[in-house]
């Protein structure tokens, strides 16, 4: 599934204009511990988190993640969006709580692998 399809079906708010939404999303991961994401998130996954600071961008970039979704209407810090644009990491937000969001991603066929 392409990232833009995901954005559409979950009505995500894309916070990084110009980010590459044509990227293929091949899985999903949810965690607020960065070491957990670094250690276990599969490449190409979309990452659901409540962390909104700019280090999430470095983690996503290093792991080759397809994008970051901030749950529960978390507002990304300004530095996060600047870094995300520089490193071409799409950052999106959703009003849904993480549990709900992950459930919908799973229903769309995404798995953690």
């Amino acid at each position: 599934m392409k990232l833009f399809e995901l954005v559409e079906s979950l009505s995500l708010d894309v916070k990084t204009p110009g980010a590459d939404l044509t990227r293929e999303v091949t899985g999903g991961y949810v965690s607020d511990l960065l070491s957990d994401v670094i250690g276990h998130a599969p490449e190409g996954a979309v990452w659901v988190t409540l962390q909104a600071h700019l280090n999430i961008v470095a983690v996503a970039s290093l792991k080759g993640l397809a994008g970051i979704i901030l749950a529960n209407n978390r507002v990304p810090e300004e530095g996060t969006l600047k870094k995300a644009s520089e490193m071409n990491v799409p950052v999106m937000t959703s009003g849904l709580p993480a549990f709900e969001l992950v459930g919908r991603l799973y229903a769309l066929g995404l798995r953690c692998r």
Partner: peptide
């Protein structure tokens, strides 16, 4: 609170 310091760093390196 930033999601660091969970005690997984050195074990992750070792692994």
């Amino acid at each position: 609170e930033m999601g660091f310091g969970s005690g997984m760093g050195l074990p992750n390196i070792k692994r």
